[in-house]
């Protein structure tokens, strides 16, 4: 089997007296979706930021395997390399779509930006690409020139996804991607995401507190509490046969409709 795509080793991060991340390690393979589950304050968002390189770890390392096969420690990347990675091989879907989009730029411009950043200079082709992606995320083509300020929350999320996937990244980070959306909108978005993840063979690191989303989207799961990973394993195994006390509590607390 091939080497892992992403490998986190002994990650630690403190904010003053608070240990937000304590010795967290895991591996992620190509095409695998991993959920980091936990309640507020569990450290899951900190972990996501550490893996994504937005925060520097106090200890430990994150190693990523580039497209050419070389394994690089994130801390060894130059600012230019990291930013280039974020524009090509990685995607980041924020909970608040406004953070992941240029709200004043049309949908087409938002999707095309990465292509233009990579040197694409043909307006017609860029626009075609944008239209293709709008179709894939189920946004009407007539909306291509509208800015996301005119979009609903669900549409903004879908646009954010398109903007990130246009360069065919291999790894996508998602932070509560369905948080705050209406239930029916969530369902549609989750289905879309599931399909895209499968079609494109994306590796995903998903942070959520919603166990149903975790079950639907991911193969594997890490349960975090107080900065530590209290349990990990296959998503269905962790949810159906939880071992740790906290996991058992989480699973039993979920209300069924």
């Amino acid at each position: 089997m091939t080497a892992p795509l992403l490998s986190a080793q002994g990650l630690c991060k403190r904010f003053g007296a608070i240990a937000a991340c304590r010795d967290v390690s895991f591996e992620l393979n190509e095409g695998e979706a991993l959920t980091i589950v936990g309640e507020s304050g569990s450290g899951k968002t900190t972990l996501l930021n550490l893996i994504g390189g937005a925060l520097a770890a106090d200890a430990g390392e994150v190693v990523y395997r580039l497209r050419d096969g070389t394994a690089r420690a994130l801390s060894s990347l130059t600012e230019a390399e990291r930013r280039a990675l974020m524009r090509t091989d990685w995607g980041f879907v924020h909970q608040d779509a406004a953070r992941g989009l240029r709200m004043g730029v049309s949908a087409g411009g938002n999707i095309g930006e990465r292509l233009m950043a990579l040197g694409d200079r043909h307006y017609g082709r860029i626009r075609e690409n944008a239209l293709e992606w709008l179709a894939r995320v189920e946004i009407a083509a007539t909306r291509v020139d509208d800015p996301p300020t005119t979009y609903s929350g669900g549409m903004r999320q879908r646009l954010q996804i398109a903007r990130n996937l246009v360069t065919r990244p291999r790894l996508v980070f998602m932070d509560e991607p369905t948080g705050g959306l209406d239930v029916s909108v969530q369902a549609r978005l989750l289905d879309l995401m599931r399909g895209l993840i499968a079609d494109m063979g994306l590796a995903v690191v998903l942070v959520t507190h919603d166990l149903a989303v975790a079950r639907l989207l991911s193969h594997r799961m890490l349960v975090m509490k107080g900065g530590e990973v209290v349990e990990s394993g296959l998503t269905d195994r962790v949810l159906d046969d939880p071992q740790a006390p906290y996991t058992q509590l989480l699973v039993s607390s979920v209300l069924a409709a």
Binding site: G233, L234, R237, D240, D241, Q243
Partner: peptide, 9 residues
């Protein structure tokens, strides 16, 4: 059955 599937530990 679930253990054979890896669904139960």
């Amino acid at each position: 059955l679930k253990m054979a599937l890896g669904n139960y530990l």
